[in-house]
Simulated assay, not measured.
Amino acid sequence: MVPRHRCGAPSPSGHWCRATAKHIRAWFRLRHGQEFHMGGISLFILGGTILSIAGKASPADSAALLQQAGIEPAGPVSVTRWRNVGSQNLLMADLIALAAEIGRQAASGTKGFIVIQGTDTMEETGFLLSLLVPADIPLVLTGAMRTADAPGADGPGNLNDSLCAVRALSGLALGPVICMNGELHAVRHVRKVDAGRIGAFASPGIGPLGTVVTGRVRLLQRPLPQPGPYPLPDPANLPRVALVTVGLDSDPLLIAAFASPDWQGLVVEGVGSGHVPQALAAPLIQFAKQSPVILVSRCGGGDTDADGTYQGEGTAAHLIANGLIDGGPLQGRKARLLLTILLARTTVPSAIRAALVPWAGLGLLTD
């Protein structure tokens, strides 16, 4: 008898429980009951709820995953347990290495890639990969909001949809997409907007790129091409970039805490269209004289008021006119990743500013 914890999770011996095997097998079946032939598809497992039983991460390795799934591939198959952590514990170094591996496999003929991970930082993982992986490489990220043993577990359906999507997206150069709850989302726009519901992902103001229903993939729109990809940075020498979200009566000490040589950059999420309390204006402008500071809105959608509809100390127009860099519609957590990658290439202020101009102006048709 396979030893199990009381909750039904596998024991530390590494065996799978019956429920896990059942769900893994279901992931690789089409809805009409046939095996999904994964020729040319590479699957990377990073961990997360999708591979958990009652909150315990599965200990299975790649060989066990294939065996329990009962896959009979029609072509080359690569299933790799890249990491086995909650997504809050993923490191940028993990994802830089993953981007390098995706590039190597794509150069060797792999046709598409799927990344399974926890949902908490999936939007950031996807965006970081979009900065490092060419857009013409089909790449789909997916996970689950419910554990594999939960009633109505969404993992099998999400992975099934991802398998369909990664093939259908070949040749479209959409860059990485997130596939959750029957929807495809561009990583630049998508956000996790709910901590627990199945429909936890949305692209506010934009909507999904497409849908996956009973194996049929429908494209609804195409994202604008974005700058990149950028050279892979040295993961051992990544610059430190802080993210600060401004709120009502934020204390200037919030900015002073990062005004040291230990921090090479700062992203500020201002209220509304990028404004900050007057008391924060001077320390931010001073910080921008020594290190790049990107200004975005904390709303998660919409633009900064770089044109100056609002005037006065602490407004977006005042801050940008005095050295802060306009982040346009970028979300703060993604602007932080972008600035990290840019600073890994150069610390020249004019070069950083020039590299961010096209990001702030994405889709802008008028000055």
Rank of each mutant, 00 (worst) to 15 (best):
M1P: 13
P3K: 14
C7Y: 12
G14Y: 11
T20L: 14
A26M: 12
F28M: 07
R29A: 11
F36P: 10
A54Y: 04
A57R: 13
D61L: 07
S62H: 12
S62I: 00
A64L: 08
A69I: 00
P73L: 04
G75R: 08
V77P: 02
G86Y: 13
L91Q: 14
L95G: 08
A100G: 15
A100M: 09
E101H: 11
A107E: 12
G118C: 06
G126D: 09
S130F: 07
S130H: 04
I137C: 04
G143F: 11
T147G: 13
A150P: 00
P151D: 03
G152V: 08
S162K: 04
S162G: 13
S170G: 14
G171Y: 08
V177K: 14
V177C: 14
N181M: 10
G182R: 11
H185R: 12
V187T: 14
R188I: 06
D194P: 00
R197N: 07
G205R: 07
G205T: 09
G210N: 01
G210Y: 05
V212Q: 03
R218M: 13
R222A: 04
Y230I: 01
G247F: 14
D249H: 15
S250D: 14
P277E: 07
L280G: 07
L280E: 10
A281R: 10
P292M: 00
I294V: 12
I294S: 00
D307Q: 11
G308E: 11
G308W: 05
Q311G: 03
A317P: 02
I320G: 06
I325Y: 04
I325E: 00
D326C: 02
G327E: 05
G327C: 01
A335Q: 01
L338H: 05
L342I: 12
P349V: 03
R353L: 02
A355R: 02
A360R: 13
G361I: 02
